[in-house]
Design a protein around this nucleic acid. Structure first.
Ligand SMILES: [Mn+2]
Ligand SMILES: [Mn+2]
Ligand SMILES: [Mn+2]
Ligand SMILES: [Mn+2]
Lengths: 147, 147
DNA sequence: ATAAATTTGTAGCAATGGCTACACTCTGTA
DNA sequence: TACAGAGTGTAGCCATTGCTACAAATTTAT
């Protein structure tokens, strides 16, 4: 049932994972930067109220991604850490790719934040291939045109 | 205050327009292909129940994008037509670009359905530039876009 | 230690987009 | 004309993600 051959259904499924991916990635980021992640940090990062953050964290906790205790810091479970690492890698790939084709860093960061959740494994591989080969892997002449 | 410098806020705004864009594009598509668009056509295309389609159409009608009468066909207003044309162009750009970097047609269609709504004008221009230059002409102008 | 400020939790509301069940309208065919 | 089947509308449910307002806890400053 997961592989429906309909683009719209696939997009809806991607959106279902979007919040989880962004939150675990943000938590890992903040932990790395400041030592610990608080609800407040997330509400500032995501630009939403602390109420929204709390409810989402509770859902992610039920899902086994986030470790949570009242008034305490926000942590990641092993599964949360995994997802954060994968999300970060994917995020960086999309940003680097957009910059490579001439998009400014600011725009790349903004667009990637949404696009990343819809880039399949195949598309990510194409992006990485392009980054490695500097876009020349498509045709032979391109390879010659580059140093 | 539409231009908040926060990627997550921007992504949320993009998502707010996503349904409208996909629906008007689908309506134009179906009208073009079969002469007229019915609720049923949309529910099949989007893979959702007719109830969901009806409610969304009613919202789009209030928004002045869709022309609607009970038990009648689904039409587009002038504004709806505009949005459909723009969405179609953007959709085709993203699909063509993904295919150009080596993504299969099926995957390109699937990924583009979600990615398209997050591709800013700047990113779309970069994609079109790349398509025009066939990915090779990165020798002069694009050299400036890298450092 | 007390008071103030900050942070977090909870109650309750709205909008959006899924759904099933059931009622109604429309249409094509008997 | 009648009626069966297809299409559409409506009621009402759930989940998610926004919000404000208020309460409780925690931390910081006096
Ligand atoms: Mn994101
Ligand atoms: Mn999206
Ligand atoms: Mn789409
Ligand atoms: Mn589209």
């Amino acid at each position: 049932m997961p592989n429906r051959p309909n683009p719209f259904a696939k997009t809806r499924r991607d959106h279902a994972d979007e919040t989880a991916e962004d939150y675990v990635e943000a938590i890992a980021d903040i932990e790395m930067a400041s030592g610990s992640c608080r609800v407040k940090d997330l509400s500032e990062r995501m630009q939403v109220s602390h109420v929204t953050v709390t409810r989402i964290l509770s859902r992610l906790s039920d899902a086994g991604l986030v470790a949570r205790e009242p008034y305490g810091p926000v942590g990641l479970t092993p599964r949360g850490l995994e997802m954060a690492a994968a999300s970060r890698t994917r995020h960086e790939t999309v940003v680097a790719f957009l910059e490579r084709i001439g998009v400014s860093n600011a725009t790349a960061e903004h667009d990637a934040e949404g696009m990343e959740h819809h880039a399949s494994k195949e598309t990510l591989e194409a992006m990485r291939r392009y980054l490695r080969h500097d876009g020349s892997a498509m045709t032979e002449e391109d390879a010659g045109n580059r140093q």
